[in-house]
Design a binder for these strands. Structure first.
Lengths: 339, 339
DNA sequence: CTGTTAGCGCGTTCAT
DNA sequence: ATGAACGCGCTAACAG
């Protein structure tokens, strides 16, 4: 057993196998034909020497890196606790890995880190990019406009100037369906707690609520939150307090908000769902933690990641994808206790 | 404004500035002297051409990558929802970035991905490694034994054969202190819900409980959970059901478990903390979400990441760190409602 | 089928 | 202070 921890290169392998290193390279890249015999000897040499190709050299020669960067943009110094993102990462990592790509995730949470990442991108750091914009501004998005590598976004964006394809959920339909679910249960007097305005998802979900309500929709029955947090739900409930006696359902744009609403309603002395039903969206871990457990709209975040990765792989293979292409993933209603 | 999106190299810059590319290289790496005048012209050329050095070429020539890999090992297909990890990532990303390094996150959640990452490591993919082992086996750890790059671990490990320094929290002291906090409040009849046996943190925390209990400690007052999840807390409460009438406190190894205990105790008809007090550990987001809000042990995960990064930077600078060196970060008690 | 060689983009001597 | 040339480790195109 060799413990020589000195750069073992393709040349060492060649020498050990008694061939030229060009042959070794061919063997490794499997393109052309290498004699049965040579192959065997090369394989043995590689194993013995514990040879691993040098990544940097490979990229330099091949003009590709075999890595894909998953970039997460969050508000300054915010952390990425969001379970959905974590799950999407897992899904993407999975399929990219199967295709031989290594996924690396980059976090842009400050001006400096954003600039640093932009620089990386410009230096052809990866062969493709998965873009998770959790924040308002898209500083990075502009950087990508100038490069020729494929990019896939995680949200059907609002910015028409970004041609990148996206994978998203059927937010509108999901919200519409769960609203109908309430209506079908004779909960006719509903109010809606909308997500932050900068989020395309929030806009689409509100659209779904409107659709389900049809004629009955009224601007005064919607509360516009500033973020996706629990506190916003509490504030919404307070805002609607004067009307609480006839309201019999809160449709909320996500689980956190729903939890906030429930908390506040409980404090006011209302019972959920007996007096007032409450629905969430996301089916996050919060959904089963809440009391009562949340009836909500489920979206498969792992699938989200996988689908984004598949689309990116397709693009990296050179297949053309039309600008602004959007793939929508289905959602489904999960019936628990809150509605 | 040039829209030429063709590989602009150091040579282009040199030509535009009217110098040889050797000079540009020197200018970039700031080592030697470059004439005031040349510098100015080079700077202008770089800006105009939007030149960014090619990463692969740089690493190849310099034998370093200016990137640090943060590797997370989780059970197969598990997601990394853990807020503490997410926060540590943020902290590490911060300080590494300030030092000019780019942090990339790698997820090992299957045999294939683990092997792929091991390969990356062997190919000198990064200049240093931050290792988060959330799972039992340390397949990867062995890979590192054969390379000469610095490694820092996130947990004071149980494996004596791994010489890498680690940054961890004072788990033992934290658990001891919060146990004493209960004892001081005349909660003398305590039980302990221990974390999974493969986790060094779990072992240390149990140790702290024992220490605080002293003579009074009894093996029958501890429940050994298989994981860190809510369900385990519920199971523990069920297990202790026969003794619930005289027990007046549950000390739990983390917040999730504490939430589970509270849920189950509530179902059994006990009031928390009036009948039975419950404490958590981590001060995760769950702590304030729980009802009643959790009294728990706080640990600063962002600081955790920062400290790990600082230690790694030190090692990458060439400073020697003794084998098995362990840096312990303080914890503190957060008093809320559950105890 | 295989050896040879010219780059890939940049850092680094070595002269000048 | 600056230009020229070599090498980092590997791929690919070209002979043979």
């Amino acid at each position: 057993m060799k413990t020589t921890r000195k750069k073992v290169t393709i040349r060492d392998v060649a020498q050990q196998a008694g061939v030229s290193y060009g042959t070794v390279s061919r063997y490794l890249n499997g393109n052309n034909h290498v004699s049965k015999d040579a192959s065997r000897r090369i394989a043995a040499a590689i194993r013995e020497l514990e040879y691993t190709p040098n990544r940097a050299a490979q990229s330099l020669a091949q003009q590709r890196t075999l890595t894909v960067a998953l970039i997460i943009q969050v508000e300054s110094n915010e952390t990425i606790v969001q379970a959905s993102v974590s799950e999407a990462m897992t899904g993407a990592n999975q399929t990219l890995g199967d295709a031989g790509y290594q996924m690396v995730t980059l976090i842009a949470n400050s001006d400096e880190s954003t600039e640093r990442i932009a620089k990386l991108v410009r230096s052809d750091f990866a062969d493709g990019y998965l873009l998770f914009s959790l924040s308002n501004d898209n500083l990075l998005a502009n950087t990508f406009l100038n490069i020729s590598r494929p990019v896939v976004r995680s949200e059907a964006g609002d910015r028409g100037d970004l041609p990148y394809p996206a994978v998203d959920f059927t937010n509108r339909d999901g919200q519409r369906d769960i609203t109908r679910y309430l209506l079908d249960k004779d909960r006719a007097d509903l109010v809606y707690v909308c997500g932050p305005g900068y989020s395309p998802s929030a806009v689409n979900r509100l659209e779904g609520f409107k659709q389900a309500m049809g004629e009955r929709f009224n601007e005064r029955q919607v509360y516009y939150a500033d973020d996706w947090e629990i506190t916003s739900g509490e504030m919404a409930a307070v805002e609607f307090q004067p009307m609480l006696n006839h309201i019999n359902g809160f449709v909320c744009a996500n689980d956190n908000i729903a939890v906030g609403v429930i908390n506040q309603l409980t404090r006011f002395g209302y019972r959920v769902p007996d007096d007032i039903a409450v629905t969430g969206f996301d089916d996050s871990s919060m959904a089963i933690l809440a009391n009562p457990k949340l009836t909500t709209v489920r979206q498969d975040s792992i699938l989200h990641g996988q689908t984004m990765a598949e689309l990116l792989l397709k693009m990296m293979r050179g297949e053309q994808v039309e600008d602004h292409y959007i793939k929508l993933l289905p959602t489904s209603i999960v019936e628990r206790q809150s509605a």
